[in-house]
Each structure stands twice: as structure tokens, then as C-alpha cells.
């Protein structure tokens, strides 16, 4: 049984936003107009966030892609009264759109803010209606949605493997964001398979001491790992400056 996970190397990330666009296209995420964005109701299963590091004048703008962390002990799961969000045995935190009644408690209890609510009826321009992905449900107004590690791709690959009577091959399946990333900053794979790209990358980065997870100390055990940016300037600065 695979345990899906993701590694995002911030040293490679150039903040181009290809992952956001790929996800948008893959998962039938509605088009975020400027209006919706300013209302803070834009839906982006993986989003590029900017933050500032350091004190003026040595201040640096940083960006970080934030998908769902797929927490092992996800805080969003036990608070749903109707089991609309649950854990698959492959470790993916799933959302059942048809069961969601819209209490939004999961979003209140998600501290990475990766759960998105359909405040409005999702709409696409007519020219885009034919390019919706048939493998992914089109959500309606009033339900929660979130990144699910492109579960339809995983299911498809697993079915194919089953038909061909074989095990799923290492790194046979990847998510849309990882596939679209021009610098290979996002890597997706099975954390339990020592030969997978994620495991190798993690083992190496662990050695360099670059691995961290967002809000790790909350104890939810996220399955999205970040690799620290290697900041040559900061490393060059003497430690005595602090």
C-alpha cells in the first residue's frame, strides 16, 4: 500500500505559477476573476504565497507553493459531522463533494487554509466548457473542495496496473502540479518506497538538514515536505551579526 507524499524544493522554485495553472486545468477549478480574488474567495488547490523574510533593509520576498498538506492526523477530518472528508488508506485526505453540507468546520480547523469553499456557483466561460476534465467532478455551490493529490490519476494508474496484473511501478503516477513544474521543484511519489524520487530526495535533503514541514509542531504529521532555500547571501553573512 503506497503512502503518497510530496516534496517541494524551495531552492528550485522560481515562483512561476505553472503548478497553479496546471492544477486549475486538471481539477476543474473555476476561473478566479479579479473580483473573486479580492473577496478572498479565490479557489486554488495549490497556491503560490509570498511572504517577507528578514528585517529592513535586508528584507527578502519569498514565495512558497502551498498545496494540501495531506496530514496523517488531519484536524479537518474528525470535525466533519457527515464524513464528507475522510482518510483513504493510501494516506490521502479526501473530500466527498456530494456529502458535504457546508458547515465549513473543516476549513476553520485547517491551519494551512487549503480548504476552499464554493461561495458562488462556479462558472466557466463558454469557450472553456469543453475542456473540463471528465475524470474530475465539477463541484457546485456550497461545498468544500481541496487538493487530493490528483487522486483520479492515481486511481487510473492503479486500475491500469491491475488490468495488466502487476504492481504499481515506482513513480508511475504524478500530480498535475509536479508534472507541470519547469524546474522539477515539486516531486510526488510513494514515501514508503525507498526507490521513489521523493524518498531519495528526502533522504539526501535530510542529510543536508534542509527538510521541514509547515506548522509541523501542531502534531498533524503533514505529508508535504519542504526543502529549505539555500541562501548564499545569508550564509555568507557572519553569524555575529545577530
Amino acid at each position: 500500500m503506497p503512502r503518497w507524499g510530496m516534496v517541494i524544493d524551495l531552492d528550485r522554485c522560481i515562483g512561476c505559477g505553472a503548478c497553479v495553472v496546471a492544477c486549475q486545468a486538471e481539477n476543474n477549478v473555476p476561473i478566479n476573476t479579479e473580483d473573486v480574488y479580492h473577496q478572498r474567495r479565490a479557489i486554488a488547490w495549490i497556491r503560490l504565497e509570498r511572504y517577507w523574510e528578514g528585517e529592513f533593509p535586508n528584507i527578502k520576498a519569498r514565495y512558497i507553493p502551498v498545496p494540501c498538506m495531506q496530514c496523517t492526523n488531519a484536524p479537518c477530518e474528525p470535525v466533519c459531522p457527515v464524513y464528507a472528508t475522510y482518510h483513504t488508506n493510501e494516506g490521502i485526505n479526501m473530500q466527498v463533494y456530494n456529502r458535504c453540507i457546508g458547515t465549513r468546520y473543516c476549513a476553520v480547523n485547517c491551519h494551512w487554509h487549503v480548504r476552499f469553499f464554493n461561495f458562488w456557483e462556479p462558472k466557466w466561460p463558454d469557450s472553456l466548457k469543453n475542456q473540463l476534465n471528465p475524470d474530475v467532478t465539477v463541484r457546485s455551490r456550497g461545498v468544500m473542495e481541496k487538493c487530493n493529490f490528483c487522486v483520479h490519476r492515481i486511481v487510473k494508474a492503479e486500475q491500469k496496473a491491475k488490468v495488466e496484473k502487476r504492481e504499481l511501478r515506482t513513480d508511475e503516477v504524478t500530480t498535475a502540479c509536479a508534472q507541470a513544474c519547469p524546474t522539477n521543484a515539486i516531486v510526488f511519489g510513494d514515501l514508503d518506497d525507498p526507490n521513489s524520487a521523493v524518498s531519495k530526495l528526502l533522504a539526501q535533503a535530510e542529510h543536508e538538514g534542509r527538510v521541514y514541514r509547515l506548522l509541523e509542531d501542531l502534531g498533524t504529521d503533514p505529508k508535504v515536505y519542504y526543502l529549505k532555500k539555500v541562501d548564499i547571501e545569508a550564509a555568507a553573512e557572519p553569524a555575529a551579526a545577530h
Binding site: 473577496q39 478572498r40 474567495r41 457546508g102 465549513r104 476549513a107 487554509h113 476552499f116 469553499f117 464554493n118 461561495f119 458562488w120 456557483e121 455551490r141 456550497g142
Partner: peptide, 9 residues
């Protein structure tokens, strides 16, 4: 829809 409220992310 709930868009008419002030609720957001």
C-alpha cells in the same frame, strides 16, 4: 449563495 455574506477564506 454565501458569497453575499462577508465570509471568506
Amino acid at each position: 449563495g454565501l458569497g453575499v455574506t462577508g465570509l471568506q477564506r
